[in-house]
Structure formats: structure tokens, C-alpha cells
Amino acid sequence: MASVPEGLLDEGVWFRVEESGTASAVRRAAERLAAALDMPENRVADLAIVAAEAAGNLVKHADQGTVLVRTVRTAEQAGVELIVIDSGPGMADVQRAIGDGHSTAGTLGIGLGAISRQASRWDLHSVPGRGTVLAVQVWPDGLPEPNWAAGLTRPLTGETVSGDGYAIREVDGRRQLLLCDGLGHGGLAAAATHEAVRAFRKAPAVPPAQVVEALHRALGHTRGAALAVAEPDPSAGVIRYAGLGNISGTVLAPDGGRRGMVSMPGIAGHQRRQVREYDYPLAPGAVVLMHTDGVVDRWNAADYPGLLTHAPEVIAATVLRDAGVRRDDAGVLVARLS
């Protein structure tokens, strides 16, 4: 496990959890990942408890439960994150469910209480009748600042790799987001996206349109991709956005307003018109949501009370669960700007 390239570690592994055997596989995968990251033994043990309880709760209570096990990183350290998603009955009173002794299925309700004690950070959102999303992180030492942005990708059913990908960077005072959808699916689509991510991370600190131009040049030897780059600037009250192809971007305002952002027609690496950059208003507390065409646009934030106040990874997982389609790779990228 330790010899696995860093990028593959960070992409993580999805598990569909419907029986106790798969729940055990989630725990073992989390332990192996923590060992590969050289986490201290006591934190590996804490992670094992978290993973066992989280996956076990899916077996007991949930419907269509899935878990993503992946690496999370800062410049100083690496930890393990579990994204736990279900379409089960949901919870009307999350705080009560967290308390030991409460259960919705006739069993001891110790799972969420144990998770909250052992985890470095956790966040949960649940809607009765729609299901629950839990994001939990275990870090080796200390507690980093919360993520300002996070993404999730899921491959087409039957594929082992996703052609969708994302990257987040802060360079010379600019915060920028990339969401990419390699043409088609499978290994060649994933290769195009990996090249876009590599080029994005190395690109100079320039506005989004210039970054998109650089990515267009970098993808010439691949099958190409749809992609978009966003640069939120809360101090100026705007978000700058440039894209090529079918990437959807939306600004979700705290008052319920919704503003779409425009990408130009084209295929990065092959066909493009002039890349154009647009500025959109960005109110304090707004959420920026970007997704590939493996996610439908019918998702409505009003159906998820309080969701936009949660961590970006919880928002992304909720959208992926309810608006992602299984006949295509799917990717969601969220920035929450308080």
C-alpha cells in the first residue's frame, strides 16, 4: 500500500455497504491507508473504531449505503477521511441521534457517539425520507483548519476509474478551483483529467481564463476534456469563472438565490472558441457549486434545510447522491465562503 502513488491514494476507494463483510472491508481499507500514511498506532486504532461504526451503521440502518475512504492533506500532514452516504430513513433530530443509547433500529445507539469522540472532525446532515451524509476525518496530530472547498467524483457503474476530477489551489493570494470531465469514460478519460489536474497545479497565478488557455495547450496529446476554473474573491464580492464544454457552475446565495455561470462551447485540448471570463456577484456566506454532466441540474437546495451551512464535502456528497446519474462519471466541487 505504501508504494501506491500519492494521487491514487487521494482519489480514494468507494465501497457499497450492504452486509457486515463489506463493513469489515471498509475498516481494513481505512487501517491500511492510515498505515501507508505513517499515522501513529493510537490514531490508526481510533480510525478503526470510526470506520467500523460508520460502516456498521449503514448495515443496520441504511438503504443503498456507500463509503468513500480517501486521504486528506495539508502542507504539514496527511489524514484519512470517510464520506458515508445513505438513502435511508434519515433523522429528524440529529443531536439526539448522536447521544449514546439512542437508536432508530432497536439497537444500541452508540455508533455516532463513538465516532464523535474518536474523530478529529466530523459533520453530518440528514433529511427525513432522503437519507444522511456523514463526513469524518482522523488526523495524526492536531486539527487543521476546515476545508474551504472539497470535491467528490464517482466512476460510471462498472468502471474502476473516473474520468471526472478536480483540484483546489491557493497561489499568490488567489484561490482557484478546477473541475474537469475527460471525454468518454475509463482509462483514457481519466488520463486526460489527470493531465489537466497536473497542469493546473503547475500553472502560474493568473486569472481563470488564462489558466484555461494553459490547460487547453497541455491537453493537446490527450482525448480532451470539458473543464472550468473558478476564482472566488470574497473581498471583492465576485467570483471569476471561465470554462470550456459542459461543466455547470452555480452560485447559491444564503437568501436562496441561484445564479448560473457560463462556460463556452468547446473541448479543451482540441476545439475552442475564444476563452471568455465572466464575473458574478458573490455574497457573504454564498456557496459555489460546480458539477459535470454526470450530475443533473434538478437539484434544489430548498429541499435540504440547513445544508448550505455544512462542510463543502457534505454538500458535495448530498448532491452526488441525489443528482448523480449512474450511466456516466459524476463529479461535484463545492466551495463554501463564510
Rank of each mutant, 00 (worst) to 15 (best):
V4A: 11
V4H: 04
L8N: 01
G12L: 08
G12Y: 10
V13Q: 03
V13W: 00
G21E: 10
A23N: 03
A25I: 00
R27G: 05
A29L: 05
A30F: 09
A30D: 00
A34K: 04
A34H: 04
D38E: 12
M39C: 12
N42C: 13
N42H: 15
R43F: 11
D46H: 04
L47Q: 01
A48W: 00
A54W: 07
A55G: 08
D63P: 00
G65K: 02
T66Y: 00
T66P: 01
V72P: 01
A75Y: 03
E76L: 09
I83T: 05
V84T: 01
I85R: 10
D86N: 04
S87W: 10
P89S: 06
M91I: 12
D93G: 01
Q95L: 13
D100G: 03
D100T: 08
G101N: 07
G101W: 10
H102C: 12
G109Q: 04
R117D: 08
R117E: 12
R121N: 09
W122C: 03
P128H: 15
R130K: 14
R130C: 06
R130A: 06
R130S: 06
V133N: 04
V136F: 13
V138M: 10
V138Q: 08
P140A: 14
D141K: 14
P146D: 10
A149W: 02
A149M: 11
A150C: 07
L152M: 12
E159L: 10
E159F: 15
V161T: 05
G165P: 00
A167C: 02
D172S: 11
L178R: 02
G182A: 12
G182M: 11
L183A: 11
G186F: 07
G186E: 05
G187D: 09
G187R: 11
L188I: 13
A191Y: 06
A192C: 07
A192I: 07
A196N: 04
F200T: 05
K202T: 04
A203V: 05
A203P: 02
A205E: 00
P208A: 11
A226Y: 12
L227Y: 08
A236W: 05
V238H: 05
Y241K: 01
G243F: 02
G257W: 10
M264C: 09
Q271V: 15
R272V: 14
E277W: 08
E277P: 01
D279P: 04
D279S: 13
L282E: 08
L282A: 09
A283E: 13
A283Y: 15
A283W: 15
A286P: 03
G294W: 15
W299N: 07
W299R: 10
A302Y: 14
Y304L: 14
P305V: 15
P305E: 14
L307R: 09
H310E: 12
P312T: 14
V314D: 06
T318A: 12
T318M: 14
A323G: 08
D328N: 07
V332G: 03
L333F: 05
A335I: 08
R336Y: 15
